[in-house]
Design a binder for these strands. Structure first.
Lengths: 190, 190
DNA sequence: TTTTAAAGTTAGCAAACACTAACCAAAAAA
DNA sequence: TTTTTTGGTTAGTGTTTGCTAACTTTAAAA
Protein backbone atom coordinates (compact mmCIF):
# COMPACT_ATOMS: atom_id res chain seq x y z
CA UNK A 1 0.00 0.00 0.00
CA UNK A 2 2.48 2.61 1.26
CA UNK A 3 6.28 2.46 1.10
CA UNK A 4 8.12 3.27 4.31
CA UNK A 5 8.95 6.75 3.04
CA UNK A 6 5.35 7.34 1.98
CA UNK A 7 4.10 6.30 5.38
CA UNK A 8 6.59 8.64 7.01
CA UNK A 9 5.40 11.48 4.80
CA UNK A 10 1.75 10.81 5.58
CA UNK A 11 2.37 10.56 9.31
CA UNK A 12 4.42 13.75 9.30
CA UNK A 13 1.69 15.50 7.33
CA UNK A 14 -0.87 14.40 9.92
CA UNK A 15 1.41 15.77 12.63
CA UNK A 16 1.70 19.14 10.89
CA UNK A 17 -2.09 19.45 10.54
CA UNK A 18 -2.63 18.30 14.12
CA UNK A 19 -0.24 20.92 15.38
CA UNK A 20 -1.32 24.08 13.56
CA UNK A 21 -4.10 23.23 11.15
CA UNK A 22 -4.25 22.59 7.43
CA UNK A 23 -2.51 25.88 6.69
CA UNK A 24 0.57 24.47 8.37
CA UNK A 25 0.74 21.63 5.87
CA UNK A 26 3.09 23.01 3.21
CA UNK A 27 5.58 21.15 1.08
CA UNK A 28 8.34 23.21 2.66
CA UNK A 29 7.34 22.35 6.25
CA UNK A 30 6.89 18.73 5.33
CA UNK A 31 10.33 18.45 3.73
CA UNK A 32 11.92 20.35 6.61
CA UNK A 33 10.35 18.13 9.24
CA UNK A 34 11.39 14.93 7.50
CA UNK A 35 14.84 16.23 6.71
CA UNK A 36 14.84 15.94 2.94
CA UNK A 37 14.51 18.54 0.19
CA UNK A 38 11.19 19.63 -1.30
CA UNK A 39 11.71 18.01 -4.70
CA UNK A 40 12.48 14.71 -2.98
CA UNK A 41 8.86 14.63 -1.79
CA UNK A 42 7.73 14.55 -5.38
CA UNK A 43 9.56 11.24 -5.88
CA UNK A 44 6.97 9.71 -3.54
CA UNK A 45 3.79 11.63 -4.27
CA UNK A 46 2.61 13.22 -7.50
CA UNK A 47 1.42 16.35 -5.75
CA UNK A 48 0.02 17.73 -2.53
CA UNK A 49 -3.51 16.53 -3.25
CA UNK A 50 -2.24 12.94 -3.43
CA UNK A 51 -0.75 13.38 0.03
CA UNK A 52 -4.11 14.60 1.30
CA UNK A 53 -5.85 11.63 -0.29
CA UNK A 54 -3.32 9.31 1.33
CA UNK A 55 -4.09 10.82 4.73
CA UNK A 56 -7.71 9.74 4.30
CA UNK A 57 -6.57 6.29 3.18
CA UNK A 58 -4.36 6.14 6.26
CA UNK A 59 -7.38 7.02 8.43
CA UNK A 60 -9.33 4.19 6.93
CA UNK A 61 -6.55 1.63 7.34
CA UNK A 62 -5.86 2.69 10.90
CA UNK A 63 -9.47 2.64 12.04
CA UNK A 64 -10.27 -0.62 10.26
CA UNK A 65 -9.70 -2.80 13.38
CA UNK A 66 -12.37 -0.91 15.27
CA UNK A 67 -14.75 -1.13 12.30
CA UNK A 68 -14.19 -4.89 12.18
CA UNK A 69 -15.50 -5.18 15.75
CA UNK A 70 -18.90 -4.16 14.40
CA UNK A 71 -18.79 -6.82 11.70
CA UNK A 72 -18.19 -9.75 14.04
CA UNK A 73 -20.84 -12.24 15.12
CA UNK A 74 -22.42 -11.79 18.51
CA UNK A 75 -24.66 -9.64 20.62
CA UNK A 76 -25.16 -6.05 19.45
CA UNK A 77 -24.28 -4.60 22.83
CA UNK A 78 -21.00 -6.51 22.89
CA UNK A 79 -20.09 -5.43 19.38
CA UNK A 80 -20.76 -1.79 20.17
CA UNK A 81 -18.79 -2.14 23.41
CA UNK A 82 -15.78 -3.59 21.60
CA UNK A 83 -16.06 -0.97 18.84
CA UNK A 84 -15.88 1.86 21.38
CA UNK A 85 -12.96 0.30 23.29
CA UNK A 86 -10.96 -0.38 20.14
CA UNK A 87 -11.67 3.10 18.88
CA UNK A 88 -10.29 4.79 21.97
CA UNK A 89 -7.37 2.40 22.18
CA UNK A 90 -6.26 3.23 18.64
CA UNK A 91 -6.70 6.97 19.02
CA UNK A 92 -4.79 6.92 22.28
CA UNK A 93 -1.91 5.32 20.43
CA UNK A 94 -2.09 7.73 17.48
CA UNK A 95 -2.87 11.02 19.15
CA UNK A 96 -2.10 13.19 16.14
CA UNK A 97 -4.66 11.26 14.19
CA UNK A 98 -7.21 11.80 16.98
CA UNK A 99 -6.70 15.52 16.57
CA UNK A 100 -7.70 15.61 12.94
CA UNK A 101 -9.90 12.59 12.32
CA UNK A 102 -13.06 14.53 13.12
CA UNK A 103 -11.81 17.78 11.64
CA UNK A 104 -13.75 17.52 8.42
CA UNK A 105 -12.92 21.15 7.71
CA UNK A 106 -9.39 20.16 6.73
CA UNK A 107 -10.67 18.29 3.69
CA UNK A 108 -13.22 20.77 2.41
CA UNK A 109 -11.04 22.42 -0.18
CA UNK A 110 -11.37 19.61 -2.70
CA UNK A 111 -14.53 17.87 -3.88
CA UNK A 112 -13.01 14.39 -4.14
CA UNK A 113 -11.61 14.65 -0.61
CA UNK A 114 -14.93 15.92 0.72
CA UNK A 115 -16.77 13.06 -0.99
CA UNK A 116 -14.56 10.26 0.27
CA UNK A 117 -14.69 11.65 3.80
CA UNK A 118 -18.49 11.76 3.63
CA UNK A 119 -18.46 8.18 2.41
CA UNK A 120 -16.36 7.01 5.35
CA UNK A 121 -18.60 8.86 7.78
CA UNK A 122 -21.77 7.43 6.29
CA UNK A 123 -20.36 3.90 6.27
CA UNK A 124 -19.69 3.76 9.98
CA UNK A 125 -23.00 5.43 10.73
CA UNK A 126 -24.97 3.02 8.55
CA UNK A 127 -23.19 0.00 10.00
CA UNK A 128 -23.92 1.08 13.58
CA UNK A 129 -27.54 1.94 12.78
CA UNK A 130 -28.08 -1.43 11.11
CA UNK A 131 -26.82 -3.29 14.16
CA UNK A 132 -29.01 -1.27 16.49
CA UNK A 133 -32.07 -1.71 14.27
CA UNK A 134 -31.67 -5.47 14.20
CA UNK A 135 -31.03 -5.62 17.94
CA UNK A 136 -34.19 -3.64 18.52
CA UNK A 137 -36.17 -6.14 16.48
CA UNK A 138 -34.68 -8.94 18.62
CA UNK A 139 -35.61 -7.05 21.79
CA UNK A 140 -31.94 -6.82 22.72
CA UNK A 141 -31.98 -3.02 22.68
CA UNK A 142 -34.69 -0.73 24.00
CA UNK A 143 -37.02 0.56 21.27
CA UNK A 144 -38.07 3.75 23.03
CA UNK A 145 -35.44 5.69 21.10
CA UNK A 146 -35.17 5.32 17.31
CA UNK A 147 -32.14 3.53 15.90
CA UNK A 148 -31.14 6.68 14.02
CA UNK A 149 -31.08 8.83 17.12
CA UNK A 150 -29.43 6.17 19.25
CA UNK A 151 -26.69 6.00 16.64
CA UNK A 152 -26.36 9.77 16.79
CA UNK A 153 -26.06 9.68 20.56
CA UNK A 154 -23.39 6.96 20.50
CA UNK A 155 -21.24 8.31 17.68
CA UNK A 156 -21.95 11.91 18.65
CA UNK A 157 -20.88 11.49 22.27
CA UNK A 158 -17.79 9.55 21.21
CA UNK A 159 -16.79 12.24 18.74
CA UNK A 160 -17.48 15.02 21.20
CA UNK A 161 -15.38 13.37 23.88
CA UNK A 162 -12.48 13.00 21.47
CA UNK A 163 -12.76 16.66 20.46
CA UNK A 164 -12.80 17.72 24.11
CA UNK A 165 -9.79 15.54 24.71
CA UNK A 166 -7.73 16.85 21.81
CA UNK A 167 -8.68 20.51 22.36
CA UNK A 168 -7.87 20.33 26.06
CA UNK A 169 -4.37 19.14 25.24
CA UNK A 170 -5.08 15.48 26.00
CA UNK A 171 -5.11 16.12 29.72
CA UNK A 172 -7.38 13.24 30.64
CA UNK A 173 -7.10 9.50 30.11
CA UNK A 174 -9.24 8.90 27.05
CA UNK A 175 -9.39 5.12 27.49
CA UNK A 176 -10.57 5.34 31.11
CA UNK A 177 -13.06 8.09 30.31
CA UNK A 178 -14.20 6.13 27.26
CA UNK A 179 -14.90 3.13 29.44
CA UNK A 180 -17.19 5.22 31.64
CA UNK A 181 -18.96 6.67 28.62
CA UNK A 182 -19.44 3.18 27.25
CA UNK A 183 -21.04 2.02 30.49
CA UNK A 184 -23.49 4.91 30.40
CA UNK A 185 -24.27 4.33 26.72
CA UNK A 186 -25.13 0.73 27.53
CA UNK A 187 -27.53 1.96 30.20
CA UNK A 188 -29.51 4.06 27.76
CA UNK A 189 -29.64 1.20 25.27
CA UNK A 190 -31.33 -1.19 27.69
CA UNK B 1 -20.07 46.36 18.00
CA UNK B 2 -19.71 45.94 14.21
CA UNK B 3 -20.32 48.60 11.56
CA UNK B 4 -22.50 47.55 8.63
CA UNK B 5 -19.44 47.08 6.44
CA UNK B 6 -17.66 45.06 9.10
CA UNK B 7 -20.67 42.81 9.50
CA UNK B 8 -20.79 42.33 5.73
CA UNK B 9 -17.11 41.42 5.70
CA UNK B 10 -17.52 38.92 8.54
CA UNK B 11 -20.56 37.29 6.96
CA UNK B 12 -18.84 37.08 3.58
CA UNK B 13 -15.79 35.55 5.25
CA UNK B 14 -18.00 32.93 6.90
CA UNK B 15 -19.52 32.18 3.50
CA UNK B 16 -16.09 31.70 1.93
CA UNK B 17 -14.99 29.28 4.66
CA UNK B 18 -18.31 27.43 4.52
CA UNK B 19 -17.95 26.98 0.80
CA UNK B 20 -14.39 25.75 0.40
CA UNK B 21 -12.68 25.76 3.75
CA UNK B 22 -10.29 28.11 5.48
CA UNK B 23 -7.91 28.04 2.53
CA UNK B 24 -10.60 29.80 0.50
CA UNK B 25 -10.60 32.75 2.89
CA UNK B 26 -8.10 35.10 1.26
CA UNK B 27 -8.12 38.87 1.23
CA UNK B 28 -8.45 38.76 -2.56
CA UNK B 29 -11.51 36.47 -2.52
CA UNK B 30 -13.08 38.50 0.23
CA UNK B 31 -12.65 41.80 -1.62
CA UNK B 32 -13.82 40.25 -4.88
CA UNK B 33 -16.97 38.80 -3.32
CA UNK B 34 -17.91 42.07 -1.64
CA UNK B 35 -17.05 44.13 -4.68
CA UNK B 36 -14.40 46.44 -3.24
CA UNK B 37 -10.63 46.51 -3.57
CA UNK B 38 -8.28 44.66 -1.25
CA UNK B 39 -6.84 47.75 0.46
CA UNK B 40 -10.39 48.91 1.20
CA UNK B 41 -10.76 45.93 3.54
CA UNK B 42 -7.93 47.29 5.65
CA UNK B 43 -10.00 50.41 6.38
CA UNK B 44 -12.31 48.13 8.39
CA UNK B 45 -10.00 45.52 9.87
CA UNK B 46 -6.37 45.85 10.88
CA UNK B 47 -5.44 42.50 9.35
CA UNK B 48 -6.72 39.04 8.52
CA UNK B 49 -6.37 37.76 12.08
CA UNK B 50 -8.76 40.47 13.28
CA UNK B 51 -11.30 39.22 10.77
CA UNK B 52 -10.91 35.69 12.12
CA UNK B 53 -11.35 36.94 15.67
CA UNK B 54 -14.48 38.78 14.60
CA UNK B 55 -15.90 35.59 13.14
CA UNK B 56 -15.68 34.02 16.59
CA UNK B 57 -17.27 37.11 18.14
CA UNK B 58 -20.04 36.84 15.53
CA UNK B 59 -20.55 33.18 16.52
CA UNK B 60 -20.97 34.16 20.11
CA UNK B 61 -23.38 37.00 19.40
CA UNK B 62 -25.47 34.86 17.07
CA UNK B 63 -25.74 31.87 19.39
CA UNK B 64 -26.42 34.00 22.47
CA UNK B 65 -30.23 33.64 22.23
CA UNK B 66 -29.96 29.87 22.48
CA UNK B 67 -27.53 30.14 25.38
CA UNK B 68 -29.96 32.41 27.18
CA UNK B 69 -32.58 29.67 27.10
CA UNK B 70 -30.34 27.72 29.48
CA UNK B 71 -30.10 30.67 31.88
CA UNK B 72 -33.85 31.15 32.33
CA UNK B 73 -35.82 30.03 35.36
CA UNK B 74 -37.78 26.80 35.14
CA UNK B 75 -37.56 23.07 34.80
CA UNK B 76 -34.29 21.66 33.51
CA UNK B 77 -36.00 19.56 30.84
CA UNK B 78 -37.82 22.61 29.51
CA UNK B 79 -34.67 24.68 29.41
CA UNK B 80 -32.78 22.00 27.52
CA UNK B 81 -35.73 21.57 25.17
CA UNK B 82 -35.84 25.29 24.38
CA UNK B 83 -32.05 25.42 24.02
CA UNK B 84 -32.14 22.67 21.39
CA UNK B 85 -35.03 24.24 19.49
CA UNK B 86 -33.48 27.69 19.47
CA UNK B 87 -30.15 26.25 18.41
CA UNK B 88 -31.58 24.53 15.36
CA UNK B 89 -33.78 27.50 14.51
CA UNK B 90 -30.81 29.86 14.42
CA UNK B 91 -28.58 27.50 12.46
CA UNK B 92 -31.37 26.89 9.96
CA UNK B 93 -31.52 30.62 9.37
CA UNK B 94 -27.74 31.03 9.12
CA UNK B 95 -26.72 27.93 7.23
CA UNK B 96 -23.21 29.12 6.40
CA UNK B 97 -22.57 29.52 10.09
CA UNK B 98 -23.86 26.00 10.72
CA UNK B 99 -21.23 24.72 8.32
CA UNK B 100 -18.32 26.14 10.24
CA UNK B 101 -19.45 26.54 13.84
CA UNK B 102 -18.25 23.06 14.77
CA UNK B 103 -15.25 23.15 12.46
CA UNK B 104 -12.70 23.89 15.15
CA UNK B 105 -9.96 23.03 12.69
CA UNK B 106 -10.46 26.38 10.97
CA UNK B 107 -9.21 28.24 14.01
CA UNK B 108 -6.22 26.09 14.89
CA UNK B 109 -3.57 28.21 13.21
CA UNK B 110 -3.47 30.83 15.95
CA UNK B 111 -3.19 30.31 19.70
CA UNK B 112 -5.52 33.15 20.67
CA UNK B 113 -8.18 31.88 18.28
CA UNK B 114 -7.79 28.35 19.57
CA UNK B 115 -8.09 29.54 23.16
CA UNK B 116 -11.21 31.63 22.71
CA UNK B 117 -12.90 28.82 20.81
CA UNK B 118 -12.08 26.38 23.61
CA UNK B 119 -13.50 28.89 26.09
CA UNK B 120 -16.79 29.12 24.21
CA UNK B 121 -17.02 25.34 23.97
CA UNK B 122 -16.31 24.85 27.66
CA UNK B 123 -18.82 27.51 28.65
CA UNK B 124 -21.78 25.87 26.96
CA UNK B 125 -20.69 22.46 28.21
CA UNK B 126 -20.32 23.62 31.81
CA UNK B 127 -23.65 25.42 31.73
CA UNK B 128 -25.47 22.35 30.44
CA UNK B 129 -23.74 20.03 32.88
CA UNK B 130 -24.59 22.31 35.80
CA UNK B 131 -28.26 22.27 34.91
CA UNK B 132 -28.32 18.50 34.58
CA UNK B 133 -26.46 18.01 37.85
CA UNK B 134 -28.92 20.17 39.75
CA UNK B 135 -31.89 18.49 38.10
CA UNK B 136 -30.50 15.12 39.09
CA UNK B 137 -30.30 16.28 42.70
CA UNK B 138 -33.95 17.39 42.48
CA UNK B 139 -34.92 14.03 41.00
CA UNK B 140 -36.08 15.74 37.83
CA UNK B 141 -33.56 13.85 35.70
CA UNK B 142 -32.58 10.20 35.92
CA UNK B 143 -29.33 9.64 37.83
CA UNK B 144 -28.39 6.34 36.16
CA UNK B 145 -26.15 8.24 33.74
CA UNK B 146 -23.62 10.79 35.05
CA UNK B 147 -24.25 14.46 34.32
CA UNK B 148 -20.98 14.65 32.39
CA UNK B 149 -21.87 11.83 30.05
CA UNK B 150 -25.47 12.96 29.66
CA UNK B 151 -24.11 16.35 28.61
CA UNK B 152 -21.81 14.62 26.12
CA UNK B 153 -24.72 12.69 24.68
CA UNK B 154 -26.88 15.78 24.30
CA UNK B 155 -24.29 18.16 22.89
CA UNK B 156 -22.54 15.36 20.99
CA UNK B 157 -25.67 14.16 19.22
CA UNK B 158 -26.67 17.74 18.40
CA UNK B 159 -23.27 18.49 16.95
CA UNK B 160 -23.16 15.25 15.02
CA UNK B 161 -26.57 15.88 13.52
CA UNK B 162 -25.53 19.35 12.40
CA UNK B 163 -22.36 17.96 10.83
CA UNK B 164 -24.37 15.30 9.01
CA UNK B 165 -26.75 17.98 7.84
CA UNK B 166 -24.09 20.35 6.53
CA UNK B 167 -21.97 17.63 4.93
CA UNK B 168 -24.96 16.09 3.17
CA UNK B 169 -25.73 19.43 1.54
CA UNK B 170 -28.53 20.33 3.95
CA UNK B 171 -30.89 17.86 2.32
CA UNK B 172 -33.04 17.25 5.39
CA UNK B 173 -35.15 19.58 7.53
CA UNK B 174 -32.88 20.24 10.50
CA UNK B 175 -35.64 21.76 12.63
CA UNK B 176 -37.97 18.80 12.16
CA UNK B 177 -35.18 16.27 12.68
CA UNK B 178 -34.00 18.26 15.70
CA UNK B 179 -37.46 18.02 17.21
CA UNK B 180 -37.34 14.23 16.95
CA UNK B 181 -33.86 14.10 18.43
CA UNK B 182 -35.01 16.30 21.29
CA UNK B 183 -37.92 13.96 22.04
CA UNK B 184 -35.55 11.00 22.19
CA UNK B 185 -33.08 12.89 24.36
CA UNK B 186 -35.87 13.64 26.82
CA UNK B 187 -36.64 9.92 26.97
CA UNK B 188 -33.13 9.01 28.05
CA UNK B 189 -33.12 11.79 30.65
CA UNK B 190 -36.22 10.51 32.46
C1' DT C 1 -17.69 77.74 2.82
C1' DT C 2 -13.63 75.64 4.23
C1' DT C 3 -11.55 71.79 6.65
C1' DT C 4 -11.20 67.27 8.09
C1' DA C 5 -12.06 62.49 8.30
C1' DA C 6 -13.76 58.30 6.35
C1' DA C 7 -13.65 55.07 2.69
C1' DG C 8 -12.48 54.15 -1.61
C1' DT C 9 -8.85 53.62 -5.71
C1' DT C 10 -4.32 51.87 -8.58
C1' DA C 11 0.13 50.04 -8.37
C1' DG C 12 3.29 47.30 -6.30
C1' DC C 13 6.24 44.82 -2.67
C1' DA C 14 8.49 40.97 -0.14
C1' DA C 15 7.59 36.51 1.26
C1' DA C 16 5.51 32.09 0.72
C1' DC C 17 3.38 28.87 -2.25
C1' DA C 18 3.33 24.36 -5.21
C1' DC C 19 6.05 22.58 -8.39
C1' DT C 20 9.96 21.69 -12.23
C1' DA C 21 14.50 21.25 -14.67
C1' DA C 22 18.75 19.37 -14.58
C1' DC C 23 22.02 16.89 -12.41
C1' DC C 24 24.16 13.12 -9.27
C1' DA C 25 25.07 9.02 -6.33
C1' DA C 26 23.99 4.57 -4.97
C1' DA C 27 21.70 0.38 -5.34
C1' DA C 28 19.29 -3.11 -8.12
C1' DA C 29 18.67 -5.47 -12.51
C1' DA C 30 20.45 -7.09 -16.84
C1' DT D 1 30.39 -5.48 -15.56
C1' DT D 2 27.35 -2.46 -17.63
C1' DT D 3 22.78 -0.45 -17.49
C1' DT D 4 18.77 1.14 -15.39
C1' DT D 5 16.07 2.60 -11.64
C1' DT D 6 15.43 4.88 -7.38
C1' DG D 7 15.78 8.66 -4.53
C1' DG D 8 18.27 12.28 -3.52
C1' DT D 9 20.39 17.32 -4.60
C1' DT D 10 20.69 22.75 -6.01
C1' DA D 11 18.65 26.33 -8.30
C1' DG D 12 14.84 28.48 -9.99
C1' DT D 13 9.98 29.10 -12.10
C1' DG D 14 5.43 31.59 -12.11
C1' DT D 15 1.64 32.48 -9.06
C1' DT D 16 -0.60 33.71 -4.89
C1' DT D 17 -0.30 35.53 -0.41
C1' DG D 18 -1.08 39.44 3.11
C1' DC D 19 -0.27 43.95 3.19
C1' DT D 20 1.41 49.08 2.15
C1' DA D 21 2.27 53.65 -0.19
C1' DA D 22 0.27 57.27 -2.29
C1' DC D 23 -3.50 59.37 -4.21
C1' DT D 24 -8.73 60.47 -4.83
C1' DT D 25 -13.53 60.98 -3.82
C1' DT D 26 -17.29 61.72 -0.80
C1' DA D 27 -19.52 63.26 3.15
C1' DA D 28 -19.61 65.12 7.71
C1' DA D 29 -17.86 68.81 10.96
C1' DA D 30 -16.31 73.38 11.95
Amino acid sequence: MFTKRQQQIVETAIGLIAHKGIQNLTIKNLALQIGISEPALYRHFKNKLEIMKSILKYFQLTMQPSMLELKKEGKAIDKINDFIFKHYEILNQKQNLAKIIFAEANFQNDETLKDSLLLMMNNSQRLMQGIIQQAQENDEINTAVTAKNLTRMIIGSMRFMIIQWSMSGMIFDIEAEGKLLCEDLKKIMR
